[in-house]
Amino acid sequence: MKLKITRLTSAAIAVGVTALGTVVMTPGYAMAAAATQCSGTQHKEFDTIGSNLDVYITLCVHRSGDGYYNAYADVTWKDGGGGVSAGMEDFELNLRLERNDADYKNQNFGLKAVNGSSSGAVRATGAKFRSSTTGGWTADGHVKWDIQNDGAGGGTWSLGGSPSI
């Protein structure tokens, strides 16, 4: 009788281990490796009243290991006149997370720091979007700008998008 119980216990353990192995090895959500792709640095010189303002922007798309995507932009500037009479009246970055040129997240960032100091750097980080779909994700955007007290109105600087992930 003792031998029979041992065999039943061994069989039950074998079934439990096989079932556990199946659960552990079956993914519930397809995970992709983290990745980031960035555009080259994009430059524009603005003819402000003081020294000409040089702005540099890099757009990036990022995928985390747990399936979240987001766009971000690194913005640096130098040689700005600064102040209300020499800098920018308006400097707004539009940042978009796209997949195959369709917008998934679209945000505007008023970058008043560009007018507040003659040089600096900021990172504008867009909201996250979760997706199990891979391929075709990019960051894109543009800048709306207006030079303070020049009487000429503003303009739009269209930025080149990032490579896709």
Rank of each mutant, 00 (worst) to 15 (best):
W157D: 08
A73D: 03
D47P: 00
T58S: 07
T36W: 02
R63E: 09
S162F: 04
V15E: 04
T76K: 11
G83M: 06
Q148Y: 09
A34P: 04
A139I: 05
F46Y: 05
Q42N: 03
A102L: 06
T58Q: 15
I165E: 01
G28A: 14
K2N: 14
Q148F: 00
L95K: 00
S10P: 07
M25I: 06
F109M: 07
A34V: 01
G50S: 09
I49K: 09
K112Y: 00
V15R: 04
V24K: 05
T48D: 10
G65H: 11
T76L: 05
H43P: 02
Y72M: 03
H43G: 04
G154D: 09
I165L: 14
S118N: 07
K44L: 11
G40S: 08
G65K: 12
A11T: 13
M25C: 10
M31Y: 14
T133Q: 13
G50H: 01
T48Y: 04
Y29L: 14
N70T: 01
G87L: 12
G67N: 15
F129T: 01
D140R: 08
V75T: 05
K2F: 13
K144W: 10
W145R: 00
D140F: 01
V24N: 07
S39C: 09
Y29T: 14
A127L: 05
D66V: 14
V23W: 12
N70W: 15
Q37I: 08
M31E: 12
A32F: 13
S132Q: 04
V55Y: 03
K128H: 03
G116K: 05
T133N: 12
K128W: 09
I147V: 13
I5L: 13
G80W: 03
V15A: 10
R123H: 10
T125M: 11
G136H: 11
A14K: 00
V61R: 03
G136P: 11
A86R: 11
H142V: 00
K44G: 05
V55S: 02
V143Q: 03
S162Y: 08
V23F: 13
I5D: 15
D140Q: 03
W137Q: 06
T58L: 09
Q148K: 02
E92T: 15
Y29K: 04
Q148L: 00
L93D: 04
G110E: 07
T22I: 10
L93E: 07
V84I: 12
R99I: 06
M31N: 07
T26N: 12
D74H: 10
G154I: 02
G160L: 12
D79S: 15
